[in-house]
């Protein structure tokens, strides 16, 4: 059984985002790039499954869609423990193009489980995983918080409104993963970093898929009104303000 983990390269969550060219483009100067947090958790879970011999997981690969400048992030995934990597060489304009490109990687390989994070922390689309599944005509399960392989069968826990469901689907399938899938992201050890240098990154040519949408401008969020402070000894006054001024209770 082989697992493919799709990884996105995103600005570190503490980055102060800025825009350039009259607010039409992200200013990448000074950005620290990291593996998207949910993708990092997917990778961690994939490696945990591989570590457990009873699951029969043999290979964990990662796939990324982006230019060569993303290779440090891909190397990081290899250092954490992925066996090999694919990079589709393009600068995607929207999630449709990313999914179309990932579909090429999946079609060319032999993967039983394809994992994607539930969203990326940059464009917050939550699109790629389900789009990829539709491109491949495969089943997909969203909001997965636990994934087990028992006796060659998949047992998947997904979040539903107000609870959880344990479901099964035939493989290959696309799993869209959220928090809970792994406790803490795995960190690269020195040995992993050394080994990552010699692991293969296969460069795949971009498929012929047009973007369906385009980002035309960005705006910063509206600044909020200054905080109104209430004396802690007279905390009850807050409730009065919420009732009569904000009118929310």
């Amino acid at each position: 059984m082989n697992i493919l983990v799709c990884i996105s390269n995103v600005p570190d969550t503490t980055t102060k985002v800025k825009f350039t060219d009259n607010h039409t483009r992200l200013d990448t100067a000074g950005i620290q790039w990291v593996i998207n947090p949910w993708d990092e958790l997917s990778l961690t879970r994939a490696l945990e499954l591989k570590d457990d011999a009873s699951t029969g997981v043999k290979q964990v690969s990662v796939a990324h869609v982006g230019p060569a400048s993303a290779e440090p992030t891909i190397r990081k995934a290899l250092a954490i423990g992925a066996d090999s990597a694919y990079r589709v060489n393009m600068e995607p304009a929207d999630s449709y193009q990313v999914a179309a490109a990932l579909a090429e990687v999946v079609k060319a390989g032999q993967f039983d489980i394809i994992l994607c994070g539930i969203e990326s922390s940059d464009y917050n689309g939550s699109n790629v995983g389900s789009m990829l599944a539709e491109f491949l005509d495969l089943p997909s399960v969203s909001a997965i918080s636990n994934l087990k392989v028992e006796g060659g069968h998949l047992s998947i826990t997904r979040e539903i409104d107000g609870g959880k469901e344990v479901v099964t689907v035939p493989s290959p399938f696309v799993g869209i993963v959220q928090k809970g899938i792994a406790k803490e992201p795995r960190i690269a050890a020195m040995r992993g970093i050394m080994m990552a240098r010699s692991k293969p990154i296969t460069v795949v040519e971009a498929p012929d898929a047009e973007a369906l949408s385009s980002f035309v401008a960005y705006e910063p969020p509206q600044p909020r009104a200054a905080c109104k402070f209430i004396d802690p000894d007279n905390a009850g006054q807050l409730i009065e303000l919420l009732q009569n001024e904000a009118k929310v209770i």
Binding site: Y96, G125, S130, F135, S142, A143, E159, D161, L212
Partner: peptide, 21 residues
């Protein structure tokens, strides 16, 4: 949960642009 798992698939199936969130 439901919208996020259906809309992207529908986008590919119908080749329709998706604005999410």
């Amino acid at each position: 949960n439901a919208g996020k798992s259906i809309a992207p698939r529908l986008s590919v199936k119908m080749k329709a642009a998706l604005g999410s969130g």
